[in-house]
């Protein structure tokens, strides 16, 4: 995470299609730590079983020149197939999922439920002195929800980090069917 934010630093969300093979995540993370780039969040999961591909979403921060470097350096990694800068491309959606446990008693419990309702959070678990909420949305929405819960009790948080995709009918990274793959 960035220690100091320079004024010319911008936040970019990158989407990367990689071969789902051992070490590929280490390569990506090693690139960021080795060259001193920032990772604000990183998520990864397999998205195309037939072609053995995973998608990594990275939120990074840096000067425009550094962002260009990050993309070029990522593109150099052999198992990286495609690097897309969603921030640069324009309209895209970023979502995060968080699980939030809040431990409290009395009036605060009612307030917690009311706020959870406002944020369209699901209650996944409940005891007489605790709730676990599931909330999805933009990172700022989740941060706001966590802040409110903090004022209502002891809070524990697990967040997935940002997953992102472009808006509109443009398909950057098509998932081919089994038949297409074999051709």
């Amino acid at each position: 995470m960035s220690q100091h934010l320079n004024s010319d630093e911008v936040r970019h969300t990158l989407s990367i299609l990689v071969d789902n093979e051992p070490g590929v995540l280490a390569r990506v993370i090693g690139l960021f730590s080795g060259r001193g780039y920032n990772i604000e969040s990183l998520t990864v999961a397999g998205v195309d079983e037939a072609n053995n591909l995973s998608r990594i979403s990275i939120v990074t921060r840096g000067s425009p020149m550094v962002i260009e470097q990050v993309k070029a350096q990522l593109d150099r990694i052999v198992p990286v197939h495609m690097v897309r800068d969603l921030t640069q491309q324009g309209l895209h959606i970023e979502r995060e999922l968080a699980l939030i446990k809040v431990v409290n008693k009395g009036e605060s419990r009612i307030e917690a439920l009311r706020i959870a309702d406002t944020f369209r959070a699901n209650t996944l678990d409940s005891t007489l002195e605790s709730f676990v909420f599931e909330v999805t949305g933009s990172s700022s929405k989740i941060s706001a929800f966590v802040e409110l819960m903090r004022s209502l009790g002891h809070v524990e948080v697990s967040r997935t980090g940002v997953s992102a995709i472009s808006r509109g009918l443009n398909v950057d990274m098509p998932i081919r069917t089994q038949n297409e793959t074999q051709e």
């Binding site: 020149m65 260009e68 470097q69 070029a72 350096q73 593109d75 150099r76």
Partner: peptide, 11 residues
Amino acid sequence: IDKSSINKNIR
């Protein structure tokens, strides 16, 4: 030949 060498040190 390496895109990452372009605009790395000098614009």
